[in-house]
Nucleic acid binder design. Structure first.
Lengths: 185, 185
DNA sequence: ACGCGCATGTAAAGGGTTACATGATTGG
DNA sequence: CCAATCATGTAACCCTTTACATGCGCGT
């Protein structure tokens, strides 16, 4: 059956804990941005093929939800994937392309752009800090199910820290240049 | 006309220096992964709409190439884009999804995975260092055309450094655990 | 009243990869 | 001799987003 990378990612999350499609979307979001409209059909297809099973849970205050669990066949499929080569990461950031044309903007506008991005990174940092705080420490040694979440959250934090430092550095260059230009007037 | 983010990125590169489609692919690659099969039709469409002009250059040792240059209309289009909001970055890394299921692999296999990734990051680091070295220093102050390339190459370097440190940290955790397990035998 | 979060799903359109097609030159 | 780099382009397929569709409860 035709399984893409995202399908294996969902399978991997379900192997650790059964979840609804909505919960899976929230769990995978920080590491692989996917909308619900992409996830729901993949789950339905994997259930058809016997990799997943599901049952409905009724909720009083919120809409009912469909909980998926991985089957033995699903775990076999996941184990097969673990031996496959890993594709390099793909990053697409509009800010990078915008930066190519920065010379077309006034410095004041540039400053706003990187300040806005700085705020976005600050929010992301808070998010990943909470994620890391939510992982039961001490039990996340190599081999445990929590270990993966632990090292991934740490990676996200280290990366966002580097991005924040970069923003500060760029903003320093931009504002120093502004002061120097003002001084020359 | 329907312009996507990649089209604006190409337009921005052409605003700084006229190039062939092949050269644009190489220039944009480090910041936005796109294949030639995606780039060529976009360039043709932008030329049709009058945003680009082109001429053929004959080469003796290599195949002939088609050089594109931005037009006045193209620069107007680019300036309009500069006022639009910037979409947040999207990253898709198969290693992250694989890490969710790391507990299914033996530690030896995990070590191989992160060592391989470490080598990939090391190569990337060398690449970005060369890129940065190729930018004429001193002339890349805010407002200059080189400034964008300068800060982008620096960002890539800072990020890849964080990723390398992360790999080393993960490998330390994995190997320490292996030694401890061996000691318990 | 309005928007947001929860919760599931489908359809259409657009973005992106893989494969097909061609062909010269250079280095191992 | 085989692979890689340079160089352009098209077609089929898959991946992803946006929009449509529904509906309740909560906070402002």
């Amino acid at each position: 059956m035709n399984m893409n990378t995202l399908s294996y990612g969902l399978l991997g999350l379900l192997a650790r804990k059964e979840s609804s499609g909505y919960e899976l979307m929230l769990r995978i979001q920080p590491f692989w941005q996917a909308k619900h409209s992409q996830i729901y059909p993949l789950l339905a297809r994997m259930e058809e093929k016997g990799l997943l099973s599901s049952y409905w849970v009724q909720q009083s205050d919120k809409p009912d939800k469909k909980i998926y669990a991985i089957t033995e066949d699903g775990i076999s499929k996941l184990r097969e994937w673990m031996h496959q080569p890993i594709a390099p990461s793909v990053t697409k950031d509009e800010l990078s392309l915008r930066t190519f044309s920065l010379w077309l903007s006034e410095i004041g506008v540039s400053v706003e752009i990187y300040q806005e991005r700085r705020e976005l990174y600050t929010e992301k940092k808070r998010y990943y800090e909470e994620l890391l705080a939510g992982i039961p420490q001490g039990q996340c040694h190599p081999g445990s199910k929590e270990f993966g979440s632990y090292i991934l959250a740490t990676k996200a934090l280290m990366t966002v820290d580097a991005e924040l430092k970069w923003c500060d550095w760029v903003l320093k260059l931009l504002t120093e240049h502004s002061y120097a230009a003002a001084g020359r007037e």
